[in-house]
Structure formats: C-alpha cells, structure tokens
Design a protein around this nucleic acid. Structure first.
Length: 280
DNA sequence: CCAAGGCCTGAATG
DNA sequence: ACATTCAGGCCTT
C-alpha cells in the first residue's frame, strides 16, 4: 500500500496534465480513453472499468527521480510544495487530442471542450453506480463533421482534431511505434500533424508516450525560466521560434537530466498555485 | 531563418 | 448593461 508521501493524488491530478477528472465523496473519477478510473488516496486504491494500468507511474522510483532533478533550491522548493506529485501515464489518443484542443486556450475551456466531445461522440458507461461518457475512438472523431466538432466549442481547432484523428486511422500516427522511438524522432513525427507544434508535442510525449525528457515550454514555463533561471537559460525576447525552443530544451536536459519532465511538472505546479490559478 | 497577425472562446475588467 | 481586453499555441504570410 502506498502512503500519501509516495503519491499525492490531488497534486498529480491538479497539475494541468488531465482535464476529465472530478472528485465525488473523496474519490477521484477520471476518463482515460475508453475506461473510467476511480482513485482513493487513503488508503490508496485505484480501480478501472476496464484494464488496469499504472496510471500514476507508481513503479517510477520517486526517490531516484527526485535525487536526479534536485539540482538547485528552486526545484527543491517546488518538490516540497507538492511532494508525491507524479507524472501520469495517460491514454495516448485522448492525450493527443486533449493537447491539440488545448492550444491557445485555458484549463476551464479545454475541460469544457473535452467533456462536450465525450458527450457527443463517446460511449456512455456505468461504473460504481455513476454514469460517464468515455473518450471516443479515433475512427469516430475522424468521421465527425466539422460542424459537430465546432459545436463542442473547439472553434478553429475543429480541423486540427479531425485531421489528427484521421492520421491515427491511417496509421501515420501509431502510438506504439512512437513509444519505441527516441524523443527526437517521436517528436518530429508528431509535429508533422496539423495543429501539433513544439509545446503540444512535448505534452503528448511526456504524459502518454514515456518520454520523460520532454519539457513542455508554454507561457508559464517561459515565465518561470525568466523568473528563476534567467542566468542558466537565456531567453532573448517574446517570440519563441522552433530554433529557440529546441536550444532551450537542450540546455534544460543537460541541466536537469533524463527526468527533466518531472522537474517541469513540479515547477509548473508551484508557480500556478502561487498565482492562485484554478485547476479542475 | 525571423516577426507579425489571425484564429476562437469565455472570463475579467472598464 | 454593454464593450473592450486578455489568455493561450499554431499556422500563414
């Protein structure tokens, strides 16, 4: 049995990685692909409407990872701020669509769009006497009309979602293969998809494709780097070109190491909480 | 290669 | 009450 020291369920869920989670009577329920997960913190128990996966990556040695990333007092503070925060191992298709839908939006809006997608296109299932709409399959989304997708609040992202789903259907995007590739090749493949840039690709790689060296650089992370790490990772001006993005990423991996993605998650969580930003 | 503008929605601000 | 501003990442020019 895991203690709250080794896994902090609240922090892990409320850290911007997932959107379709809700807490009912102290139990977290979340949509993960075609399954619903139910998680209790104390005593720790996770159950699934289908196959059980190590969603919270409890097989990762947190001690080893924290040793590896604790390079300075800033990360150490961030780690202490939400000790037991874990990267999550998400369903790749849901993660892919979620972050494509996330671009140029905010958590509240992303959440609404994704719930709409599940309601309109996903199967309704019952689990623990509660009803849920699970995430639709790629086939369904690839055949959806742009009008119906826009009806979910996706706006101009409707095209991205439809084409991204079609790329999975045509096997241009094959998540099992992407998992086996290295970071760079896997990322280049994802970035060929309409609507997938550097940041979205890194989120997909980190949260669902086992690339723990991915380090998504969104506006918040840039602010964090400017605030705490301006001496280490210099950022000249506002616009973040692909070239600059890659240069910063390289410096970051050299500094934080192969688990750089974990450091990103702790820093992001700390700064958003500091600014009292809402999660789910 | 880089910089600037447009896309879409809802919340925050005036 | 209503209008304006803002947040947010990617694509096109």
């Amino acid at each position: 049995m895991l203690s709250s020291i080794e896994l902090n369920v609240d922090s892990s869920i409320n850290s911007g990685q997932v959107f379709l989670w809700e807490k009912h009577e102290n139990i977290w329920y979340g949509i993960n692909g075609k399954n619903v997960l139910a998680v209790n913190q104390e005593p720790y128990k996770i159950s699934s409407s289908g196959q059980v996966t190590d969603f919270f990556r409890t097989s990762d040695s947190l001690e080893k990872i924290l040793n590896e990333i604790s390079k300075d007092s800033i990360v150490k503070t961030a780690v202490n701020h939400s000790y037991g925060l874990r990267l999550l191992r998400q369903d790749p298709f849901q993660c892919y669509i979620s972050f494509i839908a996330s671009s140029n939006s905010n958590i509240q809006n992303i959440k609404r769009m994704l719930y709409n997608i599940c309601e309109k296109f996903g199967d309704k299932i019952e689990f623990n006497n509660k009803k849920f709409f699970v995430f639709p399959e790629s086939k369904v989304l690839s055949k959806a009309s742009l009008k119906d997708l826009q009806g979910c609040g996706l706006g101009y992202r409707a095209r991205f979602v439809k084409e991204a789903a079609a790329a999975v259907e045509s096997d241009k995007i094959n998540f099992d293969k992407l998992k086996k590739m290295n970071y760079e090749n896997s990322k280049n493949t994802l970035m060929e998809i309409f609507g997938v840039g550097n940041k979205v690709a890194d989120c997909i790689l980190l949260f669902s494709l086992e690339k723990l060296d991915a380090f998504p650089l969104d506006r918040w992370m840039i602010r964090i780097l400017q605030k705490y790490y301006s001496d280490k990772f210099t950022i000249q001006n506002q616009s973040l070109t692909d070239k600059k993005y890659n240069q910063i990423h390289e410096k970051i991996v050299n500094y934080f190491g192969p688990y750089a993605g974990y450091s990103q998650q702790f820093l992001f969580k700390m700064e958003r909480d500091l600014n009292q930003k809402r999660w789910l």
